[in-house]
Structure formats: C-alpha cells, structure tokens
Design a protein around this nucleic acid. Structure first.
Lengths: 201, 201, 201, 201
DNA sequence: GATGAATGAGCTTTCATTCAT
DNA sequence: TATGAATGAAAGCTCATTCAT
C-alpha cells in the first residue's frame, strides 16, 4: 500500500465525509472538490465517475471496518467473553464512524451495487470471519452458544442489529424521549447484552 | 375518511412506490406523475411541494404499519406466544411492504424530519405500544422476560433488528450466498427466534 | 354608472391593490382572487384575461385621477394661485395613490398598450385639460406664464416631473440620505415651486 | 480592467438589452442566452442568479451614465451655460440609452434593491456631483441660481424630470398626438429650458 | 496536474387558463 | 355564480461531465 499523492488523499477524505453525510444522491462533486481544496475536474482526472468514486469510498470504509475487527484480540478470553469483546469493538467502531452507517444504509437504496467485484475486500472479510469463527465454534462445542449458526450468520445478525439500532435511534427519539434518554453507554450495553443473549444456547 | 378523488389516490399510490423504491432524493416528481398517468402540475395542485408529499406518504405508511400491529390478536395466547405472534406480524408486514423499509432507512439521511408534527400518528403509535405492553408485562411478572425493559424499548429493538436485517440482506447476499440461500421462511424464523431469545429472562 | 355586483367590485379593488403593488408581471391572478375572497375562475368569468383586467384597472385609476383634478376649484383665484392649487391637488393625489405611480411607470414597460381605445377616458381627460386651460391662458395674457405652451403640454410636464420625482425618491434615498431627509412636506413644496418657476415667463 | 472573455461580454450585452427592454421580471434568462448565442447554464456559470446579473447590469449602466456626465466640459463656460451643457449631455445620454430609463423605472418596482452595496458606484457618483457643484455654486454666488439647493438636489430634480418625461412620452402620445408631434429636438429644448428656468433665482 | 469554459439533461416549481359540473 | 380538476408552457436553477489549454 504505497502512499497516495496528497491531493488524492484529500479528495478521498472529502468524499468520505460528503458521501457519509449525504449518501450517494445527496453528495455533490462540487462540494467534495471544495472541501478538498481543488476542482471538480481533478476529481474526474482521478476517478471516472461519481459512482465509481462512491464505490471506492464504500470499499475503503468497509475494509477499514473489517481490519479493525480483525485486530480484536480474542485468543486469551473464554468464548463468551471473546465474542463479547468482538461485539464491543464492532459497536464502538460503528458509533465512532457514523459514515459507515450512512454508507451501509445507502446501499439499500442502490442495491448494494457498489460492492460487487472487490476481490481484496472479500478476502479481508473472509479473514475476519475466520477469526470470529474460532470462539464461536469453541463456545458451541461447550454448549454455550446455539448450534447451527456459523460466523457468517452471526456477523449478519450483529450488523443488522447494530446498524438498525444506531440509524433508527434518532428517528425513534423524535417520537419518544425514552430512547434518547438512554445514554450511549446504556444503549451500548443493551445492544451487547441483547446480542449475546440471542446467541446463547 | 371520505373517498379521495381517484386521481389523487393514484398519485399517492405512485408516490408510495417511487419514494419506496428510490427514497426522497432519488424519486422524481415526473416519474410519479407518469406512473399515476397524469402531469407533474397536478401533483403540485394537490401537494405544495415534493417534501410535503413525501411527508404525507411516510406518515401514511407508518400509520398503516401501526394499525396492522394494533390489529394483532394477542389476548388468547400466553405471553411468549403473544409476543411471538406480534413479532411474526411485524416481520410479515415489513417483508411485504419493502417501501416501509426504504422509507425508514431514508429517514436516517434526512434526520427523521418527516415525522415531526403528526399528532395523529403519535396517538396511533401509543395505542399500539399499549397493546404490546400487556403481554410483555404479563411475561415479566411470570419471570419469562427480562425485567427492566418496556414496550417502547422492545418495539425499538424489534424495529432496529428487522429493518436492519431486511435491508442489509441483499447487501450481504452479494458477498456471500449463504444468507440469501436462507429461504425467506428461514430468515423469518431466524429473526423471530433471535428476538424472542433476546427478550427472554 | 350602475352599481356593480359586490363581488365584481371586490375583485376590482383587489386587482387595483395587486397591480398597484407589483405591476402587471408581478401580480398574480391567484393573489387577486384570494384578496377578493373568491376563486381565479370567477375572475375569468368576468374578465377575458389578466391583460384585460389590467387595462380596466389602469383606465379606472386614471379616470379617477382626472376626476379629482376636474373637481379642483380654480375659478376664484388669480392665475398663479389657481395653477398652484391644481398642482397641489395633483401632487397630493399621486402621493396618496401610489398605485397610480406604479401603474404609470409600468406602462412604460408595456408600451402604454393598456390605454389604447378608451373613448370615455379620453373625454374625461379633455374636460380636465379644458379646465386647466382657463387659468393658464389668463396667466399668459397677463404675461405671468411662458407663452407658447398649452394645457396639454403643461399637464405632460407636471406629470413627468411628479411621477419621476415620487418614483425615484426611494432609489435616490439609497445613495444619499439628503433626499429622504427632505420631509414629504418639503418635497411637496419643492415640487410645487419648481414647477411654478418653470412655467413662469 | 482586463478584457472579459468574449462570451461573457456577449452575455452582458444581451442582458443589458433584455433587461432594458422588459425589466427584471419580464426578462427571460433563456432569451438572454439565445441572444448571446449560448445556453442558460453558461449564464449561471458566470452569474449566481438572475437577480445578481440584473444588479450587475444596472450598476454597469448607471456607472456608464455617471462617467459620461463626469466627462462633460464645464470649466470654460459661465455658470448658466455650464449647467445647460451638463443638462444637454444628460438628456442626450438618456435619449440614446433607453435601457437606462427602463432600468431606472424598474427600480421602482423592486425598491431600488439592486444598487444597495456598490461602493465603487457611490464613489463615481460623488465625483460627478462634485463636478456639478462647481458651476452651481458659482452661479449661486452670482445670484443666478436659487440659493439653498445643492448638487445632489439638482441632480435629483433633473433625473426625475428627464426620466419622467422620456418614459411617459409614449404613454401620452397615445392620448394625444401633440406631444409626439413635438420633435425630439423640440422636447429636448423644452426640457432644457424648463429645468434651467426652474433653477434660476 | 490544474483551470476556465462550456454543455446536455433534467429537476422542482409557477402560473395563466380551461373544462365540467 | 361558484368550484374542483386538469393542463400547456415555461421559468429559474442544478449537476455530472467534457474539452481545451
């Protein structure tokens, strides 16, 4: 991974911000250019189209997330604690990177088309899943977790729930103060417990 | 609730479709007009702006969802079965009304601004929550459900998970066939079980 | 001149207001209808088009102005005082009826097309001019006024100056406080003196 | 003042024409684009809005007028002739640039908002007024002109009268042939004399 | 790499006007 | 008189994208 030209880096950062704030449709190439301190034309010099830039940003963000999850230490803990640690890291990551939420969500509106053919991303993902599989299998062997679900499924359940909760929280908050009164700490614990209970045998 | 003029009804239906497919930004007034078999100007005759039409569609969809949930019979079952029935109805509704998914999701990109001041909607919501509270409280009294969570929180958890799962399913399917191989039946059962397990004491 | 149906009268009043505020282009039929408490369709029931309604309003306003001027008592004064009285009445009228100013001005943008064939208006105008001619001729005979100008020309000069001054006053006021500091009283006197001096032999 | 891109120049010329013919509301961006031989989008590339383009055109026209008046030689003449020369130049300019008339007039409908914050224009105006002040003061010292009026007021009176007369001439011509029969020469002389007489002590 | 000029396609919105009842 | 429905035409403006330098 060699260093990118500094302007290219700025463009990518600005695009991450803009797409993460407004989604594919809401983002404007001109805004990205201005945030990056350059012109639209330079963006077109580097990227063939807005869609392509978006794809690249999405892949980059998703890969970054996978890499953070790969870095979670799970070897020393017993299975439930290990999965709990993974979960905590996942929740923290998504809470701190709201762009990923919007980007994930935005995929829904665009059929996930942005992730189609990224081999490297698929590989990273596989590594992450294999690491998650270790404590899961160990826990299942000990009768701590439900049988019949694999790492892929567990990761899907986690993602669905965390992304759903974090993105709908503000919407629910409008209706009803109670959710938003729940401190971030509280919601974090709630999500973690909820998911662990759901996995338990 | 008197009958709407037939063209107005067609416009609302077409708007529901279009917004449900593409979200606020992606939807085009011209498309809605063409689907409804009329002109964009007539839409502006009835609705003051695109945003306002969107708000109305969102409110309508959400209210419809709440009403379906209010109609779920829960009186005859014991608590776990009652909540399970509610859950099943909720999942079915959202699976059959994918517009609601997109609409919910799209709120995230627009700060949920579309639901702010709909008193009637808030009232319907409250009725629904009160019905859900009955078996929940009964179950808690019997030690079947976790203590310390109320109907509002349960509804939030359900929505977050179901919306998250249904919307991310196609995205995950791109990476990995296994989720999509899971038959709709299978996913339905999985979600239901997952949520019930999470609520259990 | 029989009484008009009350709604017709309200429409004309509202049109006067709206055209007088915004000019032909700036005025909206819908606004007029709403101000009059009726619907656009009724306006089209009475008037064949926006342009035609405008013409009628303009004629009405101009006739009203002429009639006010006809009513000015000039018989008892000596010539200079008589013309001064006429002038004062004209200035007062235009100051109190800013619609007339805007309407006159707006004619410029539309080639005065709105006044083409109104016989009755032309007749009223002639009466007014003949009354003005009396003290003018008397003054000229006494060597008080310039020779070689007739009532028509005098009326043109008066109108040009008063309309010009009243309409440009706010524009000049932006550049320079001094004009606007001149009290309405002051401007009134200034205009009157200015015109009388210009007519003097 | 570097040369403008040729297309920009064409756009400005076309805008001057169009706004000068139809005023702010009546002018259409598409017309301007077509007259300039380009597309409306290019106009928006250069100017942020129709209003802004209008402001620029108005400022440009008004500054041009002031500059012409600054260029009038008044040093060699005695006061009355000097003011007469200024007046003649002013009348000629406005007769030859009917756009300025319409533009001035149109200000009335838009509250003169277009001239608010143009420092440079205000400065040019001040220079022009100072030049006009010289023969005025000299004439007042000799008892030739009324005391108690300054250059600003004189300029206001001149503008009001000339703009009023030139713009209302066609309107009056409809009613009455006599004004329009007055040759442009004749009207020019009449206005000049009329204004000089009004200034005289 | 960088920049100014230019364009095509399309969008939301407005408004005078008409028709049927 | 009065009203709801509908339409044609166009307006102002936005944005992704390209080209030439």
């Amino acid at each position: 991974m060699r260093a990118l030209s500094p302007m290219l880096q700025k463009i990518l950062d600005a695009a991450e911000q803009e797409f993460g704030d407004k989604g594919l449709h809401g983002a404007k190439i001109l805004s990205i250019a201005q945030s990056a301190g350059t012109s639209k034309q330079l963006i077109y010099h580097y990227f063939e189209s807005k869609e392509r830039l978006y794809e690249i940003v999405v892949s980059k963000r998703v890969r970054d997330c996978f890499e953070q999850l790969i870095a979670v230490e799970m070897e020393r803990d017993e299975p439930v604690a290990a999965i709990g640690r993974f979960l905590g890291a996942f929740i923290d990551y998504l809470e701190q990177h709201s762009e990923n939420i919007v980007l994930s969500i935005d995929q829904v509106l665009h059929n996930g088309a942005q992730m189609r053919a990224d081999r490297e991303l698929a590989a990273t993902r596989e590594v992450m899943l294999q690491r998650l599989a270790v404590p899961l299998a160990a826990g299942q062997a000990l009768g701590l977790f439900k049988p019949g679900i694999d790492a892929n499924m567990v990761f899907f359940l986690m993602t669905a729930f965390i992304v759903g909760a974090l993105s709908l929280r503000p919407v629910f908050a409008m209706h009803d103060g109670r959710i938003s009164e729940t401190s971030p700490e509280g919601l974090r614990g709630l999500m973690r417990q909820f998911l662990l209970d759901a996995l338990r045998a």
